[in-house]
């Protein structure tokens, strides 16, 4: 699966059903989705929930590390969660966070500074992926978000390159128009095409669409199978399958597709 679902940490119904939508990861949100007066009750709700429910790939998006974030990390360190999603990440923030926890970290790239220092942010220990925060980034560069995210072009492509270089997940920004499935599909197809390893979402109804687009197609699986099989019996570095030239990068890609297909089967 290649989707991360943000779930407001103060909504019991949504928290309870967060895991049923087949997202790769669930991010319980204590930050933007929770108003100031609900921050404490959201923490209480999540703690009560995490005490009884055991699921993989649970993250908590904490608040600003200079504000409530530090205490939140310390409070949840004893719970069986995968890690934290860190807002307003930069190198200073990450060096602080590193002191508070050993859990996996997903910094959000949502400021011009973070875009420019993406590699340094991603190089901190325990960073397993980076998530593009499109809304805040658009605000910070004083533009309005468009359906095709042309204004985020540089940041999106850079995120893909940096994450691929570091061997961590590149997680694209949520598509916030929750009633526009058609444009969501286009946007997710673009994420996949440019190499984003996952897409985040703020609405459960978007998850099956994201998963379906990221899932290797039958044609891709068939071709990849042929490539891998042919590679076993071909000693020469270059050969052809279905009239297409196959060399080492194509074989690696084929193996990755089969690995992904297997992961989807398991889910």
């Amino acid at each position: 699966m290649s989707s991360y679902l943000f779930v407001p940490g103060n909504n019991p119904g949504m928290v309870q059903s967060a895991h049923v939508f087949d997202a790769k990861g669930v991010i319980f949100d204590l930050e933007d989705a929770v108003s100031v007066q609900d921050k404490d009750s959201a923490k209480d709700l999540l703690k009560a929930y995490l005490e009884t429910a055991a699921f993989d790939n649970v993250y908590i998006r904490v608040n600003d590390i200079y504000d409530l974030g530090k205490n939140e990390i310390e409070e949840f360190n004893n719970f069986d969660i995968s890690g934290y999603v860190i807002p307003k990440a930069n190198t200073k923030v990450m060096s602080l966070v590193e002191k508070y926890t050993n859990k996996s970290l997903i910094p959000i790239i949502e400021t011009p500074e973070a875009v420019l220092t993406m590699k340094e942010i991603g190089e901190f220990d325990n960073v397993t992926g980076m998530l593009l925060g499109g809304e805040d980034l658009a605000t910070n560069i004083d533009v309005v978000r468009t359906l095709d995210d042309i204004e985020l072009l540089y940041a999106r492509h850079k995120l893909v390159m940096v994450c691929a270089y570091l061997g961590i997940d590149s997680i694209d920004t949520p598509f916030t128009d929750t009633d526009n499935d058609e444009s969501l599909e286009e946007s997710v197809k673009y994420s996949k095409m440019i190499g984003m390893s996952a897409r985040s979402s703020i609405h459960p109804n978007q998850i099956p669409i994201i998963n379906e687009i990221y899932k290797p197609t039958l044609e891709e699986i068939e071709f990849a199978t042929k490539v891998v099989e042919a590679a076993k019996i071909n000693d020469s570095g270059v050969f052809s399958v279905d009239g297409k030239m196959v060399d080492l990068p194509v074989i690696i890609r084929a193996k990755n597709i089969l690995k992904k297909a297997k992961a989807y089967e398991k889910n």
Binding site: S17, V20, F21, P204, N205
Partner: peptide, 11 residues
């Protein structure tokens, strides 16, 4: 309905 759980069950 737009209820995500209902839609998941329906799918």
């Amino acid at each position: 309905t737009r209820n995500p759980v209902s839609l998941k069950i329906a799918r």
